[in-house]
Design a protein around this nucleic acid. Sequence first.
DNA 1: GCTTGGCACTCTGCTCTGTGGAGTGCCAAA
DNA 2: TTTGGCACTCCACAGAGCAGAGTGCCAAGC
Lengths: 394, 394
Amino acid sequence: MFDEPDSDPRQSGRDPVGDQSTGRSGPAARPARSSARASSAARAGKGGEVGRLEIRQLDERKLSVLRAIVQDYVGTEEPVGSKALVERHNLGVSPATVRNDMATLEEDGYIQQPHTSAGRIPTDKGYRLFVDRLAEVKPMSAPERRAIRHFLDGAVDLDDVVARTVRLLAQLTRQVAVVQYPSLSRSTVRHVELVSLAPAKVMLVLITDTGRVEQRMVDCPGPARESTLADLRARLNARAGGQRFPDVPALVDDLPAAFEPAERPIVSTVLSTLFETLVEQNEERIMLAGTANLTRFGHDFPLTIQPVLEALEEQVVLLRLLGESADGGMTVRIGRENEYEGLNSTSVVSVGYGSGDESVAKLGVIGPTRMDYPGTMGAVRAVARYVGQILAES
Amino acid sequence: MFDEPDSDPRQSGRDPVGDQSTGRSGPAARPARSSARASSAARAGKGGEVGRLEIRQLDERKLSVLRAIVQDYVGTEEPVGSKALVERHNLGVSPATVRNDMATLEEDGYIQQPHTSAGRIPTDKGYRLFVDRLAEVKPMSAPERRAIRHFLDGAVDLDDVVARTVRLLAQLTRQVAVVQYPSLSRSTVRHVELVSLAPAKVMLVLITDTGRVEQRMVDCPGPARESTLADLRARLNARAGGQRFPDVPALVDDLPAAFEPAERPIVSTVLSTLFETLVEQNEERIMLAGTANLTRFGHDFPLTIQPVLEALEEQVVLLRLLGESADGGMTVRIGRENEYEGLNSTSVVSVGYGSGDESVAKLGVIGPTRMDYPGTMGAVRAVARYVGQILAES
DNA sequence: GCTTGGCACTCTGCTCTGTGGAGTGCCAAA
DNA sequence: TTTGGCACTCCACAGAGCAGAGTGCCAAGC
């Protein structure tokens, strides 16, 4: 059915991380208050005048050194020194030279020392540069793609799709995964159903093109006749069917006029509940998995993990985390670039997914700033594509 | 609307923990493999012959000592010694005497020493005795009850009720809270709706008396005529309406015969999907909150918390945790009494809740064995009652 | 002007040691 | 059965010492 979307040449895994798909992440990521000082220069520098100078300073070798530092640190979780660096990567220069480069990099704020006479670790700014210019998205291997497909296939309904997706993503990245349900505001109406449960109680059921179902109880001002409901149902579907959610109110708000005066209060009540359901932003749902992976976070444990767990429980925080990214393309937000303070030492990789060209929701991964960016981004992208395909099929 | 159910005299907070509401927890809790040896005697002893002897050994003062140890340890998280004990509780005896009692208690397996010449901490068996015989459920205070009511009121739908409940419970107990959605198998059918989405695609929507909505896509073998669906809908509701879910299949499985031969495949397909939905046990949903409270767990951090987080991600584990308790009454499962190994150092307090007399689902709390049992049990019970009321109203 | 080897210096992390204190177990006396 | 006394054990903590890794700087070399 769907054969390895990653091999689509247009978005092949070969593209540098900073290109196309993630190009926006740099400039689009708004500098958070707290980090503005540290990273504004680099960010403004992307194509600007000021940064020219800085970029020129960082010749090819210094960039290689930074890349090597990031890779080693991500692998070992320990500050990396000059000697170890030349041993593990054939940089073709001596440790002393690397030390000089490191001094420059530290001066420019890309790396730092936990304490004097320790190795270096990348700063947020360093990771930023790494992601934007030094790394490539690592495409999923064939077996991995097979596993993804196998795992996602056979989901029975939307809940199941989302549940499987989030677990899959957590497993692939070994981090905390977050998947947003296809949002109402970007979906179209597939069907509106009115079910009479009691004389003055009607249940309103909304079905979206992505298979999401939203229901709401309506307390009518008086008994609703079955014929009225049938009529209203027919008219609602005729007008709203296939329309985008935000457009619906304007399309149906003159409906009460079509009914007899006695029935209008009921019609109005139903409609206003419908509108409520449509705009209710807090109905944005989110699913989470992989919190156990937080235990692999770092050494200074409880202090790091608690605020993260707290953040993860706040739907609002999560939604903003995913939601504020630019549409479509992949977004990487690193450390203090995240607005929420509790996530200051985490990075968020997110991307939109959708049934067609358009993204209807976001999914992503939350992990330590010290994460394997190429691998994570590859996994996130691949999963998003497969989910999109599955949604489009159903 | 609902005025402080805790003041209901029948189940007033004054009852000893081991009475009525939790009486079953002792004997009902199956001895886990690993703990059978250590605690079977005490459990068998409840009213049996063997245990008589042991109970006789533990005179009133020794029980007081155990109670004091549990209380102090829960409060301080540190092993409690004989001297500190007599200082904080006026036991009316000297430390030396307490030491002797402690030796007995240790011999019988109620307390233990982390190492020689340290204070004592309760064992699982000690907590068990504490819960069964030495503590009282602590009723919620009036302000707390007000807070509960305030927090739960104003929930707009079932999702919201469950979400609020679980957050509330987590906040009250400062532990991890778990709430199961009203289960399908114990609910009755309020309404069955068939919605035609495409010629050969029908959406089946099930609405329960607790307000839960379950939907499933049906791929029909051929185009379904609207009149057939209407007919089937009417018949389904006539037969299944108000019935308990497990009874439904038997009540409707002769329906295809009532239709023209050409329509029967479609009817059969819809019915079989309906049956699937009814029995699908994995549709049991669960909501979780308060994982951040895990950080207050203990000192030996990552080791304790990781298996717990893993367990919490397994719906199956959670369901069994809640589900295996005896119906209705409150259940406390302590430490190794839990079957799942990762939860060997946690306790689970759970209770059924429901819209009427009968419990339709479970809710509960997971925390360290070293938890405030009276307070936790009080909170769990109070919340369960309020939720029951709210469900009954809607 | 960049690169390199050498060298002195710094700081962490580990182990080892000693000490104070809390707590116990046992015993003999009340 | 309870109590005071006493010797003993063991942990937790602090300090000292040491090895190792890593740095910064400098002068020499290409």
